[in-house]
Simulated assay, not measured.
Amino acid sequence: MKRVFLAAVVASLIGCTSSQVQTSESSPLGITELSSQKDCCTTLSKVSYEPITKSGDLTAVIDTNSQKVGLVSGVSYVKGYELPVFDGEANLEVISLVGNQVFVPSILILDNEHKALDVLSSSDLSYRNSGIMYSTHYAMEKTISQKYPNGKSPRYLVIFTTDKDLKNSTLIKPSSDSAIRSGSVEANLAANTEWNIPHAAVGTVELELDYSGPEVRQESKQQQQDREAALAAVVVTDQQSAMDTEFVELFDDRIRAAVRAGEFDRALDIMKQAEKQGSPTARETFVEAMKNFEG
């Protein structure tokens, strides 16, 4: 575990975990307040984004005073961050501790126009049971590329949860023998009872963001389709980030230049690359250039 997990464990020891953020005595999960029409809802472009100025740890507190955003996946309290300009890849680690309740996070990645580039969904989380040195928690480790295939760069992160996750609960799995022998109350409860933890609309999420790696995200056609399908489950199509006109025209110009030079295989390769990265005009440009070719 990296230092972000140690920070989360320390937070749990002093009583500030995702399971213990309560902003209403009558509704500690925050679901009643979330369902209220009060202060509902803002758009992704109107979220208050906290600037990230350096690599390191972040603590995202999401409570009933947080902004609400209505997404395809449901209304959620959110926490927004503005990413710094970085080269290569940003390595992101996410930790959400499981206590009396748990906030199950998903993360939207937006471009500079607040259009969705990607979603790190709760299905990317792994459940990690308690041991001698750590508490039960959900964890996610991902990389964020400096530039996506459509030419757009990530600019904002939005932490949220979904209706589907709010309707579920987490069954604590039996702990390891060593954890049980250590005398851990949590480990012994998990071993001897059916312990279901409710999912909450409020909580604390620990993050660590570090920068390094290659510049452009690489993905297959299937990976692109999977990413777009995952986004469609969260935001409507017109909120998804499209390929920059500048990049569309650049690919079209390269296709025409290759055809004029008689390099048809190269032109075909450029067309396929452009389509893979989301160009809506590359094939038409290739066909038109071939028709107009004068050898």
Rank of each mutant, 00 (worst) to 15 (best):
T136C: 03
I255A: 01
K54D: 15
S279T: 08
A233Q: 14
N168C: 01
A257F: 10
T43D: 07
I255S: 01
N129A: 10
L250E: 12
R128L: 15
T43E: 05
L207W: 02
R181G: 02
N192M: 02
G213T: 07
A139E: 08
T193S: 09
D252W: 03
A257M: 13
V119Q: 03
K272V: 04
E206K: 08
K54W: 05
A232K: 13
S176T: 13
D111H: 10
C41D: 06
D39W: 11
D244Y: 01
S279N: 11
V236L: 04
S66M: 03
K164A: 02
A139M: 08
V85G: 06
G30L: 07
A261V: 03
R217S: 01
A232S: 15
I107W: 12
V248I: 15
L166I: 06
F86N: 05
D39Y: 14
N100A: 09
S279C: 04
T42R: 04
P214L: 14
L34V: 08
R155A: 14
G30P: 04
M290H: 00
C16N: 14
Q20I: 08
V9Q: 13
V94T: 08
C41M: 11
A191L: 00
D39C: 11
A282M: 00
I31H: 03
G15V: 08
T285H: 02
T43R: 03
S18P: 00
A191C: 01
F286G: 10
A282V: 05
V259G: 02
T42C: 06
Q224Y: 03
K291L: 15
E228F: 11
Y127N: 03
V94W: 06
S122K: 09
S220N: 10
A233W: 04
N196M: 08
D253R: 14
V202R: 03
D63C: 14
F293H: 11
M271I: 09
S126Q: 13
L231E: 10
T162M: 08
D226G: 00
P198Y: 04
Q222P: 00
G99S: 09
T136G: 11
P51L: 02
A257N: 09
A261C: 02
A60L: 13
G56N: 11
Y81V: 04
G15C: 07
N150V: 13
V94C: 03
T162W: 00
T204I: 15
K276I: 07
Q101Y: 09
Y138I: 05
D269L: 12
I109L: 14
P51I: 04
T136P: 06
D165Q: 12
L166G: 07
A233T: 12
A261E: 08
A261W: 00
E186T: 15
E141C: 05
S169V: 01
A187V: 08
L209W: 10
G295P: 03
G151R: 05
G278C: 06
